[in-house]
């Protein structure tokens, strides 16, 4: 991928990611998160991880964000927009985040492999899904089935949590 496209999608991801935090309206935050995840999926595809990019679009921008929007509209969260901001606590949180950012920049700056370009791939197209499937059903078969049990447990848990308790 050309550097131009990389920076376009990186900026898209970061700007709309920041919009998630800055927006006061939860629906606007959720829509910004959708755009941010789409930019991230493009970044995955720029790394030749096509399967992960597709999964990102299907699972995150498809399923998870619909769930978020559904819950936001179910709860009708417009009442808390005009609340007072605690400036001291906000400044403290922002300071901790900025310290973490400086730490990350310093670590990446001192990493010698971070200044190398990505090695070229053998062909122009790679059989991405086949390779992930072979790893998933061969080497990682047991974790895969455990994840299946986890999803089942999560489903049952959600049904139990959202059931109305008899009073």
């Amino acid at each position: 991928m050309s550097p131009f496209l990389f920076w376009i999608f990186a900026l898209l991801t970061l700007i709309f990611g920041a919009a998630v935090v800055i927006n006061r309206n939860p629906v606007a935050s959720a829509m910004s998160l959708v755009v941010s995840f789409l930019g991230l999926a493009a970044l995955f595809m720029s790394l030749n991880a096509y399967f992960i990019g597709i999964i990102q679009v299907l699972v995150y921008t498809g399923a998870v964000m619909v769930l978020f929007l559904f819950i936001i509209m179910l709860l009708d969260l417009r009442a808390e927009e005009g609340r007072q901001i605690n400036w001291l606590a906000s400044a403290g949180g922002l300071a901790v985040a900025l310290i973490l950012l400086g730490q990350i920049f310093s670590v990446v700056g001192h990493l010698t492999i971070a200044h190398k370009a990505f090695p070229p791939l053998p062909g122009s197209t790679i059989d991405d899904v086949r390779n992930i499937g072979a790893a998933l059903f061969g080497n990682y078969n047991l974790p895969f089935q455990i994840v299946g049990v986890l999803v089942l447990v999560a489903t049952i848990g959600v049904v139990l949590l959202s059931k109305r308790q008899p009073r």
Binding site: M1, P3, F6, A10, T13, L14, G17, A18, V20, V21, L40, L43, L47, S90, G92, G93, L94, V96, A97, L98, L100, L101, I104, F105, V108, G109, L111, I113, A114, H115, K116, A117, F118
Partner: peptide
């Protein structure tokens, strides 16, 4: 030329944005 560090920086900034969201909102 895009290096590994560029992706790591973008990932780090995105992580910090999420972290700031947890701290501030």
């Amino acid at each position: 030329m895009i290096t590994l560090g560029d992706y790591l920086i973008v990932s780090g900034i995105l992580f910090v944005i999420g972290f700031a969201g947890v701290m501030l909102r």
